[in-house]
């Protein structure tokens, strides 16, 4: 008899786990909170992905098609795990879906519930939601996806745009001391996209450190050398309203200019990633550990990054911390391996 494995969360990580297990002949149940698969990249209509600017459809669209067409995967849309009990080495799980409740026994479980974007309104100094032209990287991602990146306030093309890095990350005031890892690269990518879209528009990036780690660094250089993006060291202290429907970024250029107050047509906040409400929810329901940053905690971050503290429950993707899609997909595969081995051993 084939193994039964439960995957919770249908983002890049969860879809990778589900399709690999299904290819091995496992009966996979995939529980997704939303009415569609694809996770955050789908929700916010990412159009082109770093590091190589390939269309998101190549990656996310492809994973969705593979998942949806695999007959070994049963997808529960708009659903949740409503009850979770250990049954020896197996798990009795009730899935609540629009079609009612269904209880099944699973050999192992993969949690891939991902992240939530930090809500920049929580940090008042950035005036998000106060001014229409202050948006964040997920908003801009969606605007690119919908084909309209004009100023939200008046529908005109922006003449200058500022990116502000580390919004909601590396900030003890908002409670997130960690670095969200992808927002530098996303910002640099979007700066390039804006320069290509509006060749007359000046684009600034205000940074504390630029963390385009590894090969992502190529995009950083490209932004500077080929697209003339202005990179200024200094974190913005305050955003206020300026003349002619502009928003003023006030801060200290710690290397060159000293104090600055520059009016911009549009400001893009590089909001970071958080464990969201789903991480504590999973921790509570499944008896998993949360880390001090609000993400799910692996048993050993180096040796067993895909194992949770509970035997038979595995973790993949951004639910254990900020990471890029490639890492999430890699983890989806690795967790699938762990979950499969556990299921085989306890047959």
């Amino acid at each position: 008899m084939a193994e039964n494995i439960l995957v919770i969360g249908g983002g890049p990580a969860g879809m990778q786990s589900a399709t690999l297990l299904a290819d091995l002949g496992v009966n996979v149940s995939l529980v997704e909170r939303d009415s569609y698969l694809g996770g955050n990249p789908k929700k916010f209509k990412y159009k082109f992905l770093f590091p190589d600017m390939q269309p998101a459809d190549n990656v996310i669209g492809e994973l969705i098609r593979k998942t949806e067409t695999n007959s070994n995967i049963k997808i529960y849309y708009s659903s949740e795990v409503s009850d979770f009990k250990e049954n020896g080495k197996k798990f009795d799980v009730t899935i609540k879906s629009p079609n009612g409740n269904e209880t099944k026994t699973f050999d192992s479980v993969i949690v891939a519930t991902g992240f939530e974007h930090f809500d920049p309104a929580r940090d008042a100094k950035y005036s998000y939601q106060l001014f229409d032209d202050v948006i964040d990287i997920k908003d801009l991602e969606r605007m690119f996806g919908e084909g309209n990146v004009n100023r939200p306030s008046n529908g005109q093309p922006p003449k200058n745009v500022a990116f502000i890095l580390c919004v909601g990350s590396r900030d003890r005031h908002v409670g997130n001391q960690y670095c969200s890892r992808v927002c530098c690269t996303v910002s640099v990518k979007q700066a390039i996209e804006l320069r290509e879209h509006f060749p007359d528009c000046e684009v600034y990036i205000f940074y504390m450190d630029i963390r385009t780690y590894g090969f992502f660094e190529d995009l950083y250089w490209e932004a500077m050398e080929e697209h003339d993006v202005q990179i200024v060291k200094g974190r913005v202290a305050e955003i206020t309203s300026g003349p002619n429907n502009t928003v003023i970024c006030k801060g200290e250029d710690t290397l060159l200019r000293g104090p600055f107050e520059i009016p911009f047509d549009m400001v893009v906040l590089a909001s970071g990633m958080e464990g969201g409400p789903q991480s504590p929810e999973m921790a509570k329901k499944l008896g998993l550990e949360l880390d001090e940053h609000g993400f799910l905690k692996p048993q050993n971050v180096t040796l067993a990054p895909f194992k949770s503290n509970k035997k038979g429950v595995f973790l993949a993707g951004a639910c254990t911390g900020p990471k890029a899609i490639s890492d999430s997909i890699t983890e989806g595969g690795a967790a699938a391996m762990d979950a499969y081995v556990y299921a085989m051993k306890n047959k």
């Binding site: 202290a237 801060g251 200290e252 000293g258």
Partner: peptide, 21 residues
């Protein structure tokens, strides 16, 4: 981290060569 937020928000920084950073 030398981010300059303190200095950006510091009133005298606008008038003098003075920086809490």
């Amino acid at each position: 981290l030398n981010c300059g937020v303190c200095t950006g928000g510091c009133p005298p920084h606008r008038f003098f060569d003075f920086s809490p950073r």
